[in-house]
Write a protein that binds this DNA or RNA. Sequence first.
RNA 1: UGACCCAUGGUGUAAUUGGCAACACGUCUGAUUUUGGUUCAGAAGAGUCCAGGUUCGAGCCCUGGUGGGUCAACCA
Length: 508
Amino acid sequence: MGLPRKYGGLTNLRFDDTNPSKEETEYVESIKTDVRWLGFDWGDREFYASDYFDKLYEFAVKLIKAGKAYVDDQDSETISSQKGTPTRAGIESPSRNRSVEENLDLFNRMREGEFDEGSHVLRAKIDMTSPNMHMRDPIIYRIMKAHHHRTGDKWCVYPMYDFAHGQSDYWEGITHSVCTLEFEVHRPLYDWFIEQLRDGDYRPRQIEFARLNLSYTVMSKRKLLQLVKENYVNGWDDPRMPTISGLRRRGYTPASIRNFSDRIGVTKVDGMIDVALLEHSVREDLNKNAQRVMGVLNPLKVVITNYPEGQVEELDAVNNPENPDAGKRKVPFTKEIYIERDDFMEDPPRKFFRLAPGREVRLRYAYFVTCTDVIKDEKGEITELHCTYDPASKGGNSPDGRKVKATLHWVSATENVKAEVRLYDRLFNDENPDGHKDVDFKEFLNPDSLKVLPECFIEPFVKDAKPMDSFQFERLGYFNLDPDSKDDKLVFNRTATLRDAWSKMKNK
RNA sequence: UGACCCAUGGUGUAAUUGGCAACACGUCUGAUUUUGGUUCAGAAGAGUCCAGGUUCGAGCCCUGGUGGGUCAACCA
């Protein structure tokens, strides 16, 4: 879709629904939804290979009449064994030299439903000694007594993909038929059919490019289907899935995915793209556009001892420091608040700038506070902190010009909204950087790929959020309101983390 | 022991079709910052898989290797 947008052309959306047992309306609809969501429009150019079943049948008859196709009545194992191997030529089927009349009769009877599935196939007569396996008399029609999602029960013979693809391109007037690398060896066959079909100079060309491989990510449809079927994830749109619907649910924006695609380009190198590039693309977009909001995921209560009991102050907070048009909002401040547990250390290491006993920090948009007491339970665990605030530092600046090294996000302990936050991580652990490689992925599943934090505190602002709205919880990362959220239970998915210099330093 | 395709900093892509190898991500400095985010400034990092050849000149053309990918479904 991006190529014609760049070079000035059009894209047809076509479903190669040649196999009735594999096609489901559900998939067709999801693909259309996803492509539309990405911001592409195919106008009225929506096609199905099944639109051409009549023409394909006629073309097959034409090939038979030209002596270039024949009906084979051997079973599939025999046909397969006669194909040879990539290094050894195949041998010709005894059916290969049937008369045109007999072939026409048999093919017609196949269509009439006279034969059982698997008993007869139509094959193109090309070359059983070709070094290219796909040219060794490939099967072009098979009997399938199955209901088709669009043509119903009209047919019981269906064309193979290879027999439909190029011809469909031809009839639609396609110039560049772009597909993935594994079809490279099919191209001679694609061209062979076009040569039999075409009348004039025009012919479509198949051009292959590398499919996307993402590090640490399984992209194989077969494996993704297994993840869904065996309930390792909650469906195709589980936020951990590398599907378009998964990314959407997770909070990725269409623009970020388009930018990512532009950055990786279209080439034939079968490489491995670093997920960091995908993540950079979302951050870039979200940072510019996401609403900032304060949220505390892992709360630690702070009592501001010299703050009046029962007082609620409405403080000004900017919605996006990079975009003044995003406006401001009011955040309620009270005597008891929550801060992030990670933002306090009783014994801070040298480079830890945040709150510690006796240290003064800024509460974002609020006041400077100093930690005076650390309250613990019998087990020695910190249950709350006592702080004093400097009333003169309202808004976050002290009139005497003194500086603090850190600014903390916080949420009022009484004026807030409770939410569930889901932290999604990679589905696979660090030992499986090549997620696409053919290994048993179950051994590499990451048990922490989903962490549910049932009781998080977010500032009241998010009450007005709509599903899919993106937020940046200050310093915690990007989140979006899950589409399945109900008013009585807000659920946020983490879209991406922020680059975190502190955690990097901790690991050193 | 075949055919087809591919090969450029750590990663992904460029290089006006033969003219000083560029950009993005990542990494590392420094500045700014009411997010250890963002932004800004700068740095390191490849001589283009190897060996020949053609040419005034080769990442690009030719030959031969090496490495990787794909192909033996009545799947797409």
